[in-house]
Design a protein around this nucleic acid. Structure first.
Lengths: 348, 348
DNA sequence: CTGAAAGCGCTTACAG
DNA sequence: CTGAAAGCGCTTACAG
């Protein structure tokens, strides 16, 4: 604690090296107009005294913070959400590779005014140079207001036709291909009665997956039975409840169900098990994401894998590039999908 | 971008409210010596203009950053490490509850000079008010130098007798109790030939678990066979290799093995399976941590659960309290252990 | 190639 | 209760 008092600053380094603060700043910032001998002389002192420029002073004088914010929306108890955690680490590692830091923030709900205010504060305070949002509704006023203010914001899963601000950087999942893969695979296994448990419809990927489902079914001449279009969201409980309700309704079952994501599929499988039904014998199931736990389910879950790590890398790198150069995405990036066949679907 | 130009500042707010910057600052900082009417008048303008004080200016003028650093050491590819991710979220959520932000940083190795320098930089730059280290060796020069410089540092898993700087805040696992629970349980099941796969011996919990194992065995009059004391670390691969080597040696097997943590136990189980041995029929196994995947193993893994969330809460809250008031831990916190009995141990 | 000086936007004694 | 002013530690035109 005591030693915190005499922090060394650029004036002190300048004195010690026999130059001006300007020159110290020039070598710290690696400017070209410093002769090698001067640079070396100053560097020696800097290293000898363990000098690191005070970040607040640098930022106040016009430098960037080299920090990006990462905002997880509606993540429930995130500490338990494996996928959300993966995304956090992915952003941290990618940003770190660019010499950037990540300030992670969890936002329970965008309906909570205080919570929204706290997010705005982070931007307005200039704590960060830009931020990434994961899990936000497709048209989220908080995000729109931030973009309108000119802040650099990266968004996962959004589609707002017509909006194309340069400071709005968007990446998406290739839901159309993924859903086509899923439906196509089930069709190959001779399924004709295929249902879906939808995701959250206020997020872009919710309706996008649903519409992709409709198109994929139509393309194969398969009818969509409204009784088998089950409302849900992206959580496990939604899958459990959707199946429980369907079972309770007494209506006939489809032979296969596509879940909006793997968590939903887990819930659906639990509900089926709880009612004495077997997967895939009584019902085939396909999920989305390829969650870490998917391969460990019983049966192992067939799913459409999304390369989240790559997706986050594109977004993080893109955001940093925008911050540094003002270069916007030329076109929205879309993560490829891949069908991972395991044991949760059977041939009819 | 354009709107970024005319950021509003305290001078502007002062002008609009018809007061001085000093007064604006007083209401922003909630100082008592401002009459209610003045406060309201200023607050109205602040809200109307969406004014948030520039953080760098505040810090430069003497305020705290309200940010803590979280440093994950030797975390391999952290994006894939579920447990590490839980710890990150736990710290973020706890800090957020105190109005603090978390800057997470991943440190491959404390042997990498550049990596170490980058960590130091974060502290010296005053980017953070303090930092938490997870996974560092027990006596880590980087940490010691930071503490010597007076920085506030929280540490998970450390024991350095005699060192008791107020700015060194330590939490530990209750390895002694946990190991006693594990050995006691196996002894009850009539196991006498018990082995151990050790953790990393440069971390405190490595040797601490081992010594606790020796004591727990001795307490029950059980002999420790050196052939069954297997070197390892805290990764899954160490468990796999330890068992593979033991099997390859042709030496007799113990009837039970305690793994330094659950990841190691997973590796051990895989190795046994690969050699056609069954758990618990041929060998009983106990892990430590109660990893998310432990209950999903085949057989489900019996383990000593550690309440990581509580542990991180104690540390995070303690660190923030120290930053704000200078109050040190009165005594190192120790997380309680609990035996979770599942299916990986059999009675002899 | 280099230094003196202004300026970044706050907070905080100090004086009244 | 309130304002004028110094100071926090940098960077960056500007002038030479």
């Amino acid at each position: 604690m005591a030693s915190r008092r005499n922090e060394i600053n650029s004036i002190e380094i300048a004195r010690l090296a026999g130059v001006s603060r300007s020159t110290v700043s020039r070598v710290v910032n690696n400017y070209p107009n410093v002769p090698p001998e001067t640079r070396e002389k100053v560097m020696r002192i800097i290293e000898e005294y363990n000098y690191f420029p005070n970040m607040s002073a640098q930022v106040l004088a016009g430098k960037k913070t080299r920090t990006i914010g990462l905002f997880l929306v509606d993540a429930g108890h995130v500490a338990g959400d494996i996928l959300a955690n993966m995304l956090i680490s992915s952003v941290i590692e990618n940003a770190s590779g660019c010499g950037y830091y990540v300030l992670t923030h969890i936002l329970r709900s965008t309906a909570d005014g205080d919570a929204v205010r706290r997010v705005k504060e982070i931007f307005y305070q200039r704590r960060i140079d830009g931020g990434i949002f994961i899990g936000a509704p497709n048209e989220e006023p908080l995000i729109e207001s931030l973009i309108a203010e000119g802040f650099a914001v990266g968004i996962v899963d959004q589609h707002l036709p017509g909006k194309s601000d340069p400071n709005r950087l968007v990446v998406n999942f290739d839901n159309a291909t993924g859903m086509d893969l899923a439906v196509g695979y089930l069709a190959e296994l001779n399924h004709r009665n295929i249902g879906i448990i939808n995701g959250a419809m206020n997020r872009f990927s919710g309706p996008d997956k649903y519409e992709s489902f409709l198109r994929a079914m139509e393309r194969r001449g398969l009818a969509v039975n409204p009784d088998w279009v089950l409302p849900g969201d992206f959580h496990e409980s939604a899958g459990y409840e959707a199946i429980s309700r369907l079972l309770a309704s007494g209506k006939p079952l489809p032979t296969a169900i596509i879940a909006a994501n793997d968590s939903v599929a887990f819930g659906a499988m639990k509900a089926l098990k709880a009612h004495g039904l077997r997967v895939p014998d009584d019902l085939s199931i396909i999920g989305f994401d390829d969650h870490v736990l998917s391969a460990m389910q019983h049966p192992a879950l067939t799913t459409v894998r999304v390369d989240f790590d790559l997706l986050m890398k594109q977004l993080t790198d893109g955001l940093i590039r925008y911050i540094e150069t003002g270069a916007a995405f030329t076109e929205p990036y879309v993560a490829p999908s891949e069908l991972i066949i395991r044991d949760s679907c059977r041939s009819l």
